[in-house]
Design a protein around this nucleic acid. Sequence first.
DNA 1: GTAAGCTCTGACAGCGCTGTCAGGGTCAAG
DNA 2: CTTGACCCTGACAGCGCTGTCAGAGCTTAC
Lengths: 115, 115
Amino acid sequence: MKIGELSRRTGVSVRMLRYYEGEGLLAPGRTESGYRDYGPAEENTVRRIKMLGAAGMTLETIRRLLPCVTSDDPAFRPCNDLRRILAQQVSLIDERIQSLSQSRTILAGYLSSVN
Amino acid sequence: MKIGELSRRTGVSVRMLRYYEGEGLLAPGRTESGYRDYGPAEENTVRRIKMLGAAGMTLETIRRLLPCVTSDDPAFRPCNDLRRILAQQVSLIDERIQSLSQSRTILAGYLSSVN
DNA sequence: GTAAGCTCTGACAGCGCTGTCAGGGTCAAG
DNA sequence: CTTGACCCTGACAGCGCTGTCAGAGCTTAC
């Protein structure tokens, strides 16, 4: 299918689909005339990217993770990294939450001091 | 005092002190030769900016808040907005935390499904 | 053949903050 | 007077993602 259709099916903008490709997350074939040509595998990948993105991951992180998650691949590597990266992401999020909580505390302090 | 000294005293980079000014948070006088000239009031202001910034506020938000906090001013307006803005900031942080927690849950799910 | 609609590439913009560099004055001490 | 330290302005860069525009080719249906 062409990029417009994939966009409609996945809800990811055409712009972003091209961007994914530029970032090495997607590698669709091309028609003779140069149009990107996506298959079901690519559609799956886009869905996965979307999910991981929803989990707050950077495209760069997703890129490293994708080969592990793409169940269509024979997965040469058992992806020892998968667990490590996921765990890393979780603690990264924990740090952010911690930091925000701290900010929250400070603000709440101001707020109560204002009466 | 000149900008370098203020920077040393407050721990805020020269770059940022100039930036604060550009954003309308600070309005130091100028010497004849055009050097910025900061007094104790400005130093206080910078300290306040630092604190509010540590609470996760945008400079724009801080700008709106500053006139309320600058205790040196007679404070024409009783700053009805102060409470409102602070509360608003708190709920903004809450939203972010919520969003991160959601991401965390998703990731933790992935992690456990990987075993 | 023509027009509408889709695709292509490449580039600019913006969010909020910060560093850094360039080109050029100023000030203080020797 | 010269030198080194400091200041000035203005502009570019980068983070990560996204929209949008321009200029041009392809496709499809009438």
